[in-house]
């Protein structure tokens, strides 16, 4: 033993040398299991569980064709949320950072998405066999980027005055949009028949499990956010801990979602990395509570323990009197 170090046996809390009472570990566990199973069954019978059907691109393009086309144009001209996201989807944005710490950038593009190609050009080329559509895609692809931007900007602006025509088609005032209207009406047609839901999932393989592309496409539109807002699930509605319907959600995320509601996080472009850092630090502190002076002394200062162990202290006091 090193000099000056207290022997372990001197720690009064290491071993209990006082009285013991008989106890049935297995019986206690069995009763606990029975009680919890019964409560779970009662809650299940009383409340069941939520299951709101997912949104499909087919539904979205039918229920709100203007929003669908607006989103598709933003994917084509590279102005959508995904198109400008940066890593891990593309190099078009810097990603979030905290001082010089840029993990998003450092870890690079692991799920590459070229929004114009993946969401518009490739589905049009692979699904629609009409010569007019192929010609429109070819015209668009061979135009200068300045020309492309002029067409898509004019078209995007005109979408503000768009009307939904027969068969859920989108009509806009005439203008110089180049091949964009043909491309968009074709893409809308594919989406409304359900073809785009499948097209965005396909890759080189037959079996599919990765929904990144269709989910990001829908997230760029307002279809998911509109449903979420109605259900109170938005980030600024403490939505992270909420569940659809009137079910309790992930209430254990209360502290995590709390930070997003207050400044500077509620207005910061780097809110996610700042909140992740704070929660990471707090989680580490939580694990290391026994080693943090001050925090580990709180239970001694606020003596809740006197209530918890009141039987024990009462016995000690009685023993002291006799």
């Amino acid at each position: 033993m090193r000099r000056g170090r207290r022997p372990l046996s001197a720690d009064p809390y290491r071993e209990w040398k006082g009285g013991y009472r008989s106890y049935d570990l297995i019986k206690e566990f069995s009763i606990a299991f029975g009680v919890v199973l019964a409560i779970t069954l009662v809650l299940t019978i009383l409340f069941s569980s939520p299951d709101e059907k997912p949104t499909t691109i087919k539904q979205w393009s039918r229920s709100d064709p203007v929003d669908f086309v607006t989103t598709a144009v933003s994917e084509l001209d590279g102005t959508s949320g995904t198109a400008t996201y940066g890593p891990p989807y593309n190099h078009n944005g810097p990603g979030q950072h905290m001082w010089f710490i840029r993990p998003q950038k450092w870890l690079g593009v692991s799920h590459p998405i070229d929004t114009a190609r993946d969401y518009v050009l490739a589905p049009l080329s692979s699904i629609n066999r009409q010569p007019a559509v192929h010609s429109a895609v070819s015209t668009y692809e061979h135009a200068s980027s300045k020309q492309q931007a002029a067409w898509t900007t004019a078209y995007s602006n005109a979408l503000g005055k768009a009307k939904v025509g027969p068969g859920d088609s989108v009509t806009i005032p005439s203008g110089s949009y180049g091949p964009v209207p043909i491309m968009m009406s074709s893409l809308l047609g594919i989406a409304q028949t359900g073809g785009l839901d499948g097209a965005l999932l396909t890759s080189k393989q037959f079996y599919q499990t990765d929904y990144t592309k269709p989910l990001l496409f829908m997230a760029d539109g307002s279809v998911l956010a509109n449903r979420a807002q109605a259900e109170h699930l938005l980030g600024d509605q403490w939505g992270m801990m909420n569940e659809t319907g009137s079910f309790p959600g992930q209430s254990w995320l209360w502290l995590y979602t709390f930070w997003y509601q207050i400044k500077p996080f509620s207005t910061s472009a780097n809110a996610d990395i700042l909140v992740m850092t704070i929660m990471g630090a707090l989680s580490l502190a939580f694990i290391l509570v026994p080693l943090i002076p001050g925090v580990r002394d709180i239970p001694r200062w606020i003596p809740v323990y006197k209530l918890i162990w009141r039987d024990h202290y009462r016995e000690l006091a009685r023993a002291g009197r006799t």
């Binding site: 993990p103 998003q104 499990t209 990765d210 996610d272 990395i273 850092t277």
Partner: peptide, 16 residues
């Protein structure tokens, strides 16, 4: 994504 976790832990990849 902001913490770099998204590079290898993709919440939109159902299989993963």
């Amino acid at each position: 994504n902001s913490a770099g976790i998204g590079a290898f832990f993709n919440l939109m990849n159902f299989g993963q």
